[in-house]
């Protein structure tokens, strides 16, 4: 009944309509019915005794036109990054969000809560006698979970001959990481509450027979980490502390544990401090302790780094690293260069 009535009304309107709704006066009609929000009426011209000075209108160029339409997967925003520069960290040699060497509590990717982001990295380290290459990807789920994979290739170059494993023998390591933010925020919230995350890193050496021959108990192992990271804005200082429960020899490149038993999981420490020079630039230092299960003089690692966010998506990190003695060869210092692309 109601339906038929309303359709009739529409018919009636259509019947009288054509003469009134000519093409030329259609815009005029629209103009008349346009709703003018009250607050958009021009303000009383600059108040005479206001504390607020008149500012120049924002030119269109100044407006941050960053609102590209982003792909979506259901309700999840894909790659709709909104993090502040550098707050996703750079990438560690094991593929996790962090400093160059130390894992941080930060989550990789530029996504915010409810979004999905990703990052990829390549890292090269040139040491006195060895070369390191690693590359990998990380996926961030909201501000909560990070899943990562990295492949590391450790080139023994001329030392390979001396060690009896062949010129240029390259150790390979796969690292599968997961990290869960359990509390706090890197930037916001209470100053005393850092961003805290727990995580694992499952590593698989691709040189099983060799690392066992070198004395390792296993070719695969899992690290457990607890990280706390905070940006102390009042000091422009980023501080990170990570506890790592591990049995890895040289991160796992030389396997896990020692065949003779005895050496097992140990608690290790990773610390970073960074000073923010600008929104885009941070300089700092890191320290990472490591166990010496194999008795090969596995040293603690340290670095001095500078990271620069060239764009929202591209961050470059350069560092001077001192990795001490590796596989009995001392004095392994050199340059570290890493590029990270994040969305």
């Amino acid at each position: 009944m109601v339906l038929s009535l309303s359709s009739l009304l529409i018919l009636a309107q259509a019947a009288v309509g054509p003469s009134a709704a000519g093409a030329e006066d259609a815009p005029e009609r629209q103009e008349r019915i346009a709703y003018q929000p009250v607050l958009e009426q021009p303000a009383a011209a600059s108040p005479p005794n206001s504390l607020v000075p008149a500012t120049a209108p924002v030119a269109p160029d100044d407006a941050l036109a960053l609102n590209e339409s982003e792909p979506r997967a259901g309700k999840l925003r894909m790659f709709d990054g909104g993090k502040l520069l550098l707050t996703n960290g750079v990438t560690t040699v094991e593929g996790s969000s962090g400093g160059g060497l130390a894992r941080w509590a930060t989550i990789g990717g530029r996504q915010m809560a409810g979004g999905i982001g990703a990052s990829a990295h390549v890292t090269g380290i040139e040491l006195a006698d060895f070369g390191w290459r690693s590359y990998g990807i990380a996926v961030g789920l909201g501000d909560r979970i990070e899943l990562s994979y990295a492949r590391a290739d450790f080139d023994t170059r001329d030392i390979g001959t001396a060690l009896g494993i062949g010129q240029g023998y390259t150790f390979n390591l796969d690292t599968f990481g997961a990290k869960l933010r359990v509390a706090g925020d890197l930037v916001y919230g209470e100053t005393w509450l850092p961003q805290i995350a727990v995580g694992i890193e499952h590593k698989r050496s691709r040189d099983g027979a060799l690392v066992r021959a070198l004395g390792a108990a296993d070719a695969a192992g899992t690290d457990y980490t607890l990280s706390a990271t905070k940006l102390f804005l009042a000091r422009s200082l980023l501080v990170n502390a990570t506890l790592r429960y591990t049995e890895a020899n040289e991160l796992g490149l030389l396997g896990f544990g020692a065949a003779g038993g005895g050496a097992d999981y140990r608690l290790q420490f990773e610390g970073s401090v960074g000073y923010q020079l600008s929104r885009r630039a941070v300089v700092g230092a890191e320290y990472r302790s490591k166990p010496d299960n194999l008795g090969l003089g596995d040293d603690d690692w340290m670095d001095i780094f500078a990271a620069y966010a060239l764009t929202r998506h591209l961050t470059l990190t350069a560092a001077y690293v001192d990795l001490g003695s590796i596989a009995t060869i001392p004095g392994q210092r050199g340059g570290f260069l890493s590029a990270q692309v994040a969305f």
Partner: peptide, 20 residues
């Protein structure tokens, strides 16, 4: 005070023009 007021006003102007 004047510089602070100008920065606050500029922040509002930029945000009004920020599509985000």
């Amino acid at each position: 005070r004047e510089g602070i007021a100008r920065i606050a006003a500029r922040t509002v102007d930029l945000s009004e023009a920020d599509p985000r």
